[in-house]
């Protein structure tokens, strides 16, 4: 770990200014990912701006009846918040499918969106990685890529975004509120993370010094008929091979609205709005769900060890939509005990 200077900020504007003063300064909140990366010499910030004392730790109902999640509210407090549980159960389920209770108690909502990939090669300084060191090459494409992306990949990077929470935020059409050097702005969640392209070292569209202050959820949006399905190699404390946040708005057996986001398959939570449009107005059938899944995965490409994810993702979409239809608000690991 490198030596670094440290400042505890009292106000968002001050925090932004503090990070903006140095080109390799970083914000720190829960630190659940950043500190690991620093110990491994993958992140080497010269300065840390501690934002834990900022007044961003509340969950509040907005005038339009949407919900604002403070950036510093922990993942655990968010998942167990009454408004979230009642009105956005998909988000609660997704958060609780991630990490471990200890991590969820430390990790914040803002930080969750900013966690780095879990690609083995990104974490190992002995191997080339374009995300860690642009231009060195991607070791995963011809390496062990079982956990890697099948959608939206590029020749330079096939890493995935590891978050569960973000998959639900994508499905729920969340917005990210940011304070930066040029003032405040709001980013649609769909536009928050990037695909790797030829800039795999960039995970998202934040500028240096941009501080996430909160995340907004729209009002009255997929309160029922939702399911978060996470498929992984053990029942807890493992990242998704494939995860699906599925939400339906039904009238009788007719699909009024649908939103499906995938995790573990791309550099960002993956959503196919065109496919969703085609599903709207249809009756909910297994065949229709499968056809939808085929469309969503139509551009998928496997790299050997991860090729199975293409078929697995299709099956997971069908299952998650079926669970959402039945309002089976549960993650898979509990099914066997049901």
């Amino acid at each position: 770990m490198n030596s670094f200077s440290y400042h505890r900020a009292a106000h968002p504007v001050e925090a932004v200014k503090d990070v903006n003063n140095q080109s390799d300064a970083k914000f720190v909140a829960g630190g659940t990912n950043l500190f690991d990366l620093m110990k491994l010499n993958i992140e080497k910030p010269s300065h840390l701006t501690d934002i834990n004392r900022l007044d961003l730790g509340k969950i509040e109902v907005l005038p339009n009846n949407g919900l604002r999640l403070g950036a510093l509210v922990t993942n655990a407090a968010t998942a167990w918040n009454k408004d979230v549980e009642e009105n956005y159960p998909l988000l609660s389920q997704a958060i609780l499918a991630g990490a471990s209770p200890q991590l969820r108690n430390m990790a914040t909502n803002g930080g969750n969106t900013l966690q780095r990939t879990r690609c083995y090669y990104f974490y190992d300084l002995a191997t080339p990685c374009n995300k860690r060191e642009p231009g060195t090459g991607c070791s995963a494409i011809n390496g062990f890529n079982r956990i890697h992306a099948i959608l939206g990949t590029s020749e330079t990077c096939i890493a995935t975004h590891p978050s569960d929470m973000c998959v639900a935020l994508m499905a729920l059409d969340a917005k990210v509120n940011v304070t930066g050097v040029n003032g405040e702005r709001t980013i649609d969640f769909a536009d928050f993370h990037r695909l790797p392209g030829d800039t795999p070292h960039l995970d998202n569209h934040l500028e240096h010094g941009d501080l996430i202050t909160s995340i907004d959820l729209p009002a009255d949006h997929f309160k029922t008929n939702v399911a978060y399905l996470k498929l992984r190699d053990r029942q807890s404390y493992a990242f998704a091979l494939v995860s699906v946040a599925a939400a339906l708005k039904m009238e009788g057996n007719v699909i009024q609205d649908v939103s499906v986001a995938l995790g573990g398959v791309a550099h960002k939570p993956w959503r196919d709005r065109q496919a969703e449009e085609q599903l709207k107005g249809q009756s909910a059938t297994a065949a229709g769900f499968r056809e939808f899944a085929e469309t969503v995965l139509s551009g998928a490409r496997g790299f050997g060890h991860n090729t199975f994810k293409i078929e697995l993702a299709k099956r997971a979409i069908v299952r998650a939509l079926t669970m959402a239809l039945k309002n089976e608000s549960t993650i898979l690991s509990d099914l066997s005990k049901a």
């Binding site: 879990r118 083995y120 191997t127 011809n142 390496g143 062990f144 079982r146 190699d233 053990r234 807890s236």
Partner: peptide, 30 residues
């Protein structure tokens, strides 16, 4: 039976999942 495996990248001759986040052993829920 279900989880453990140290995966070798034969290009580098190096075990790649060399931490307990990625080298899976059973957790309580298993």
């Amino acid at each position: 039976a279900l989880e453990e495996e140290t995966v070798m990248d034969n290009n580098f001759g190096r075990f790649m999942n060399h931490n307990l986040g990625e080298y899976h052993v059973a957790v309580n829920k298993d």
